[in-house]
Structure formats: C-alpha cells, structure tokens
C-alpha cells in the first residue's frame, strides 16, 4: 500500500529559469555546488524564452526499475519514490538510457548514477522555488489548480458571451 502520495509537480510555465533548484539540490545531496550533480535540471531554449525543469516523475511502472539488470532500482512506498540501492548498482547506466524524461544522470566524478529522492520528504527545490514552478503535492490534487484555472476561464468566457447575447 502506497503510504506517501506526494510527488513533485512541475508547472514549467511558472519557471523563471533561475536554476536555484539545481544549486540547492547539489548542495543538499553532495555538499558542493555543481549543476551536473543536480537531480533536477532546467532545460532551456533561451532563444525563445522557454524554461522547463525536468526531474524524476517517480513512475508507477518505471522503465528504470524494469530495465535494471541488477535489480538495484525499486519503489519505496513509504517515501513515494523510486530509489537506487547503491550496494546492488553495477553502474551500467541502463536506467539513464531508458528513462523517458532524461531524469537519471551519471556523474563522471563519482562514477555513479543519481536520481531525485524527494529529499526524503522535504524537497529543497520546492522549498526554494518562490514562484512555485516546482511544488510537492498529493497525486490526487495534481489536476486541481489547472482545473480551477480552466473552469474560471470558462466561466468568464460564458459571462462575456452572455453579455454579448443580451446586447
């Protein structure tokens, strides 16, 4: 039974591209500043002003878990995440290649793969993201905000149409 249903919700439209999430992620996990150690990465198309933070989606049917020949990846229901057992990991990087989001990374300096562990329940990227482009929400509430926004737009459009009809 899944005990923790909270996951990272990434609303890329809100991202300002500052990469503070990358900075704090690396400092939190590896005690150094280096974005190639970050579990979350802001992918950018600067020429168009598009910024998209990408991190592990903690997939239910995770390709990394399925693909791992050493069975080093598994689901931890207590923390609601997919995690790596470094005692089993053989460093084959299969998970890196099968991850559909490019959210698994191999750190050359340490010769090991890394992925988001949700900071054991207190994700630092969320804590530092002032604009809430990254938030930590219950899976059942994932669509809540978008749904409310869409409903508000519908309501406003309906009202406008009503006014036009009456006029």
């Amino acid at each position: 039974m899944q005990k923790n249903n909270k996951i990272l919700k990434i609303d890329y439209e809100k991202c300002t591209g500052c990469r503070l999430c990358e900075l704090v992620c690396a400092v939190k996990h590896d005690r150094v500043s280096n974005p190639i150690r970050s579990r979350i990465r802001v992918i950018k198309w600067e020429s168009e002003g598009i910024y998209v933070p990408v991190s592990c989606q903690q997939c239910e049917d995770a390709p990394c878990v399925l693909g791992c020949p050493a069975k080093a990846l598994s689901r931890n229901d207590d923390l609601g995440r997919v995690e790596i057992d470094y005692n089993k990991c053989i460093g084959c990087r299969t998970c890196v290649s099968v991850c559909p989001f490019g959210a698994m990374h191999f750190v050359d300096a340490d010769r090991k793969v890394i992925k988001c562990d949700l900071c054991d329940g207190d994700p630092q990227c969320v804590r530092f993201c002032d604009v809430e482009a990254v938030s930590f929400v219950e899976t059942k509430d994932l669509g809540l905000e978008k749904g409310r926004e869409a409903a508000r737009r519908l309501q406003a459009a309906g009202k406008k149409a009503g006014t036009l009809l009456e006029a």
């Binding site: 300002t16 591209g17 500052c18 990469r19 503070l20 900075l23």
Partner: peptide, 9 residues
Amino acid sequence: AGCFGCQVH
C-alpha cells in the same frame, strides 16, 4: 525571468 539563483526575477 531571473538570473542565476535569483528569486527577484
């Protein structure tokens, strides 16, 4: 948008 590591955006 913000510069590196800045929340002033």
